[in-house]
Simulated assay, not measured.
Amino acid sequence: MNEGWKEPPQSPLLVLENLKKHYPIKRGLLNRTSDYVKAVDGVDLNIMPGETLGLVGESGCGKSTIGRSIVGLERPTDGRIRFQGADISKLSGREMIRLRSQVQIVFQDPYSSLNPRKTVGSLIAEAVRVHRVVQPGEVDAEVDRLLDLVGLPKNSKSRYPHEFSGGQRQRVGIARALALKPKLIVCDEPVSALDVSIQAQVLNLLKQLQKELNLTYLFIAHGLGAVRYISDRIAVMYLGKVVEVGPTKEIFRNPKHPYTRALLDSYPIANPHLRDRERIVLEGDVPSPVNPPSGCRFHTRCPMAQAQCRQEEPRLAGEGSHSAACLFSH
């Protein structure tokens, strides 16, 4: 090997380019479109192979819509979704079936995502058979392997979803996602419906599986504790836009955007000496995504807002891997 040779930089596994998802509002006897809900309105993100990108924000900010768009459950209004360099935002039905073997999703509510009339074994085996992951005679052994991988006994195959606890059902959902040997898994608030102790177990399982199987995660959540524990980088969303993105430690140590600071200030701290610290307390409600504010979308609730914020829309900018969409954060 030449002494001057350097390993080429790794390419992102997933890239979002100006991603938009607008939902039409139908009104009147003729059911005409009168306006649009701008759920996602111009998002640029990338995820590197083997990393976990945490996506956080208030309910309704568009983070779940991004996850559903990536796996093909929603068709983007505009923009591109590139997976391994290929644009997957406008795939046909057959092409999407092939993509599903590479990109999977774990839903927030495991019970509603599992057919209550089928046993756990048949739920997992169905994906294995349809996508021909193994030979027909090896399906049962593959189901046993997947159950063992997520910490469930083999006799779970004959049981129905209602016979499991919430944490166990989420393990079933994870096993089903792993059945196709994907490279990317979208985790759409996978622990928010679980008890705190069970949350820790599921998060540890996800980290263990990532290490063993070289998985890449998009981890969507509104709980900062879970995101801080599992994520390598964090992207913060507000009203359809990404307002800050950076390494997890840097986001928590030195948040640049006022909205990110407000989210961190709302996070409880066990140290009693820090209870009287100066905090940003947000006032008012989140504006409507049908008619978002001009300029910076956060200016209606931002304690630092100035006249320029009402007129000029900020772009993500910063030094290195940490950037924020704020006119006065640099």
Score class of each variant (00 low, 15 high):
136 P>I: 04
99 L>W: 08
160 Y>Q: 07
312 E>K: 14
206 L>D: 07
151 G>T: 05
200 A>T: 12
212 E>Q: 15
278 E>P: 00
255 P>K: 04
280 I>H: 00
206 L>C: 10
213 L>Q: 13
132 R>A: 13
166 G>E: 11
234 I>R: 00
56 V>Y: 06
115 N>C: 08
140 D>G: 09
306 Q>D: 09
122 S>H: 12
318 G>Y: 08
116 P>S: 09
148 D>E: 14
163 E>N: 09
127 A>C: 03
33 T>P: 01
175 A>N: 02
279 R>Q: 10
75 R>C: 02
42 G>Q: 05
258 P>N: 05
293 P>R: 04
156 S>R: 01
185 I>Q: 05
250 E>P: 08
65 T>N: 00
200 A>L: 09
229 Y>Q: 05
296 C>K: 00
111 Y>N: 05
231 S>H: 09
3 E>V: 13
272 P>Q: 07
61 C>V: 10
26 K>G: 04
164 F>H: 08
13 L>H: 01
104 Q>S: 13
325 A>W: 00
116 P>G: 06
104 Q>L: 12
94 R>Y: 10
43 V>P: 02
232 D>M: 07
246 G>M: 00
208 Q>M: 13
17 E>M: 06
53 L>S: 00
76 P>G: 04
14 L>E: 02
112 S>R: 08
114 L>V: 07
164 F>S: 01
307 A>F: 12
279 R>K: 15
302 C>L: 05
301 R>T: 05
52 T>N: 04
297 R>D: 00
12 P>R: 08
180 L>A: 07
193 A>M: 13
190 P>F: 06
25 I>R: 05
199 Q>K: 10
307 A>Y: 11
249 K>H: 14
243 V>E: 05
215 L>G: 08
250 E>H: 07
224 L>E: 09
44 D>T: 03
242 V>Y: 00
207 K>D: 14
53 L>Q: 05
285 D>W: 04
53 L>Y: 06
328 F>C: 05
296 C>Y: 00
224 L>T: 03
214 N>P: 12
131 H>R: 10
207 K>E: 14
237 M>L: 02
92 S>L: 03
157 K>Y: 03
5 W>M: 12
42 G>H: 07
280 I>L: 09
18 N>K: 15
196 V>T: 07
80 R>T: 07
104 Q>R: 13
219 F>N: 03
323 S>T: 14
181 K>R: 15
72 G>A: 12
171 R>E: 09
203 L>C: 07
303 P>C: 04
186 V>Q: 03
5 W>N: 13
327 L>A: 11
20 K>S: 06
127 A>T: 15
64 S>V: 13
183 K>P: 00
9 P>M: 11
9 P>F: 11
268 P>A: 03
